[in-house]
Design a protein around this nucleic acid. Structure first.
Lengths: 320, 320
DNA sequence: TTGTACGCGTTATCAC
DNA sequence: GTGATAACGCGTACAA
């Protein structure tokens, strides 16, 4: 692989001149520029990225931490990140964690090691304290409804959204309401639980721990949930669930079992993916892709990083 | 940021010794090793990745080209790649292309620029000729049913699988069979079309161009397809479709319209995702994740790279 | 077992 | 406009 020095030699100029034409600097006589181009052509020259990265101290690489790429919610965020990243000429380094703190630390080490210029957490398991320690090495953005402001964050107001969802179920006559979460320990889930407790208090209903279902993320989970529901002695009449996938699983199974929806069992979910529309599932729309885009914008704008809350919207369909 | 030289100075050793403890080389006296560790601790030393990459000429970074992360098929491949990559300490650089050749070229340039050690195409739009030109710069793996063997490839035998699917529909009494493709220009789609022509010839049916539906990938596409089907003057009685998403959209809409399945309309799809099981969609299982894993193994094994065909399996359910 | 010196390929500074 | 030359931070022959 030819390097910049060989080009300089062949073109009869200095390495600095070669570097100049490489980076489209002005102040290079046209003849020399031509000569350099010819030399590059002849030797099939192409720049070495790690060398540039070392020299410049930046890489145009953006790290993205996500638990699993197969959960549409995260896939959508990444899509948004990719789309916006494209505009800023950023490549994406994906770190799949399965909520493993060790893996998240690896991602943070990539930041400290200057391999990536910034890092976006679509979700996290590591503590804020630890993550903040890495902030000096580059911008870190959280995709969660965070209370702190040291680290910029992008999210919908989850507590408000969950309360709105519950209120909607209330107006439809439900008081026995259960809910599902993706991961109880998550920040967003905490907000949702809080909202749940608030509303249950308001309507003088006990907070039944067994009505808060953890680790519900997929269609399969939804299927099991409805099966579960059938076997329960005291049954909720409505569910506010993690996402459209869980709702889809629930609805499909409910229909098979001849459960009347929404009379016997009402379901409201989050996200508003294609599947929700196709199955007429009532859901709360989240601008997921937009979150990813905003996160990248935060990476780019050194100045006004902050906590941003995006709007959500309740979509009334047939399952409530 | 402290560098290796400062550590050497503080620890009272040479840079090579520091490098040795950094890389767990033998032949370092314990006292010196301790001293180095202490110095690293005190200065909060951490290695600079681009520098290592430049010096070693490799990065442990693996490029992954994919059209869209939102299509479950590609997400699954990436999942497999990530899982296997983990074992080999590989990080993933994602290049989302939307089948844009320009973007694929960018990915190839990353390979030439030594930013990534290898590249996996989950799908491609660029010509084999162009891609092959980049092979000298690092291993390139294709996730497609390729006829050539210069570039290693991982896939199921698409032609065989499609023929098996069509045969299955035949045994169920269907002769008027339509099919859908993700992208007509794709290698896998070519195989599928070929199989389609072969079988149609065999049963003396014309190959109706309007019964080969292109650009069908999502649930929405499936919905439109069934709506379309209703408006057709001459209707096929069976569809062999791109993937489970398209099938799901078709089935949902068919049920709503009171279309009798599988009598009036039979649907067989590919992939066997969760949604297919949940909706009892007959489908042809593809070991997608396994493909990703195998691709990574090809990247690692310098020697026996080749063309590998993974097994598929027809899953009988309720839509045929 | 340890240290010196050079190479990796590029950018940036400064003098001309 | 142009060219030396010093960084950038690390790995590694080679010598000792």
């Amino acid at each position: 692989m030819a390097n910049i020095r060989e080009i300089a030699g062949l073109a009869g100029v200095s390495v600095s001149t070669v570097s100049r034409v490489l980076n489209n600097h002005p102040y290079v006589r046209d003849e020399k520029r031509q000569a350099v181009h010819q030399a590059m052509e002849r030797l099939d020259y192409h720049r070495n990225l790690p060398a540039i990265h070392l020299s410049k101290g930046t890489t145009n690489l953006l790290g993205v931490v996500l638990p699993s790429i197969e959960i549409p919610y995260f896939g959508n965020i990444v899509e948004g990140i990719a789309e916006e990243g494209l505009k800023h000429d950023l490549q994406l380094v994906l770190i799949q964690t399965n909520y493993n703190v060790e893996k998240e630390l690896e991602a943070l080490e990539l930041l400290r090691g200057s391999l990536i210029d910034g890092l976006i957490f679509t979700s996290r398991a590591a503590s804020l304290k630890i993550i903040k320690e890495y902030n000096p090495h580059g911008p870190i953005i959280l995709c969660e409804d965070s209370d702190q402001t040291d680290l910029p964050s992008v999210s919908i107001p989850h507590e408000k959204a969950f309360m709105d969802g519950l209120d909607y179920l209330l107006t439809k006559g439900h008081t026995k309401i259960a809910c599902t979460l993706g991961r109880k320990q998550g920040t967003n889930s905490h907000k949702r639980i809080k909202a749940y407790q608030t509303i249950m208090d308001k309507i003088n209903q006990p907070v039944r721990e067994q009505w808060i279902f953890d680790k519900c993320l997929t269609i399969e989970d939804g299927i099991h949930l409805t099966e579960n529901w059938c076997r329960m002695t005291e049954r909720p009449t409505a569910f506010l669930v993690t996402n459209d996938q869980v709702a889809a699983g629930m609805v499909l199974t409910a229909k098979e079992k001849g459960i009347h929806m929404p009379e016997e069992l009402a379901i409201l979910s989050f996200d508003n993916q294609q599947i929700a529309k196709a199955m007429h599932i009532s859901t709360i729309d989240i601008p997921i892709k937009q979150m990813g885009k905003k996160a990248v914008q935060f990476i780019q704008n050194t100045e006004k990083r902050s906590k941003v809350s995006l709007p959500f919207q309740l979509i009334e369909r047939a399952t409530v």
